[in-house]
């Protein structure tokens, strides 16, 4: 694996020592590929650096295992669906540098999703969809590829179409800023796996937020056309941002247990960061109202836009055709 050269734009890639995972760890299978072993399994953005090696995966006391699993799904689904959308830019970006950068971000989020889904399955195995007896599909893949749209708990922001580059930049700015604020707090979680995933994610999202912020400024100050498109993108995306800070009852409970973070507690910090980006860019604070819930239900409750089932149809088609398949 050392002979594989990192594309220049990737922020940090320390593929140094990866201690072997503890073979007595029942959840070792998912971490094996991430920590090393067969180098042919290795890919950028999926190597998990030392924080998780030997991490204690028992569920901390004082938190319901079902709540922890569901909470991990929420964090995982945001990352997975955002990654699936971003990867659709591959071979379609405005320039090769952007193609590479967006793929890096998609890889980072995919890596987070994989670990979080594995954590969800380990915390509460009853969340994992049933597959035929003897299926070799690992639990994190069963969660990704065999759940229905109504079982996904991502916010609606991440599932909407990429739109043009301006829409993608605005979505990414809002999403990365909110997720960074969340993961900064989550790195103090009493759950060691969540704390490790969050600590790794903080580095990745710092880069992502910076990338999106720089492009936001560039589009705002570039040409009349880029400014027109950015303004339209901001108006289109803004109704989705409030949902990022709405507290779901599961989030409230895991936060109270010191395992999760109540997203409402990040709202002020996120607003300050976004206001700074808007001010530097000379863009007015958007005023569009929040997208309504449906009978009180939003993404975290499994209530989605029309876009999600189409996205999942593509994502799940091969896996579902081969429930006994090995990949």
């Amino acid at each position: 694996m050392t002979d594989h050269v990192e594309p220049a734009s990737h922020p940090a890639a320390d593929s140094a020592s990866h201690p072997a995972p503890d073979p007595s760890d029942a959840h070792g299978s998912v971490y094996d590929g991430l920590l090393g072993g067969d180098p042919s399994h290795w890919a950028f953005g999926t190597d998990f650096e030392d924080p998780l090696a030997g991490v204690d995966t028992t569920v901390p006391d004082g938190v319901d295992a079902g709540d922890l699993g569901t909470y991990c799904q929420m964090l995982a689904d945001d990352a997975l669906v955002a990654s699936q959308r971003l990867s659709q830019w591959t071979s379609r970006a405005p320039d090769l540098e952007e193609d590479i950068a967006l793929a890096n971000i998609a890889l980072d989020l995919l890596g987070q999703a994989r670990l979080l889904l594995a954590r969800a399955a380990a915390a509460d195995p009853s969340l994992v969809p049933a597959l035929p007896s003897g299926s070799p599909v690992p639990p994190e893949d069963a969660l990704a590829f065999f759940r229905e749209a109504g079982q996904f708990r991502n916010v609606r922001l991440v599932e909407t179409d990429n739109g043009d580059f301006a829409v993608t930049v605005v979505k990414l700015l809002v999403f990365a800023t909110a997720r960074l604020a969340l993961l900064e707090r989550l790195s103090a979680s009493r759950d060691h796996v969540l704390a490790a995933v969050a600590a790794k994610g903080v580095k990745e999202l710092t880069y992502t937020r910076d990338y999106a912020g720089r492009w936001f400024l560039t589009l705002a100050q570039g040409t009349d056309e880029s400014r027109r498109r950015l303004d339209a993108a901001l108006a289109a995306v803004w109704p989705f941002q409030a949902e990022l800070f709405a507290t779901h009852e599961v989030e409230a409970r895991v936060a109270a247990a010191g395992v999760g973070v109540d997203p409402a507690t990040t709202a002020d910090d996120v607003a300050v960061v976004l206001a700074q980006v808007f001010a530097v860019s000379g863009v007015d604070q958007p005023t569009q109202g929040a997208l309504a819930a449906v009978q009180g239900r939003q993404g975290r409750d499994g209530l989605h836009t029309e876009a999600l089932s189409l996205l999942l149809a593509e994502m799940q088609v091969v896996a579902r055709a081969h429930p006994m398949g090995q990949w």
């Binding site: 890919a43 999926t46 990867s87 591959t90 193609d99 995919l110 893949d141 590829f145 593509e314």
Partner: peptide
Amino acid sequence: GRAPSLRRKAILLAKVQDEA
């Protein structure tokens, strides 16, 4: 978009990125 496992998705995404 259709990679049948999360690991294969990461490998393929990284490979196509290398081509760029």
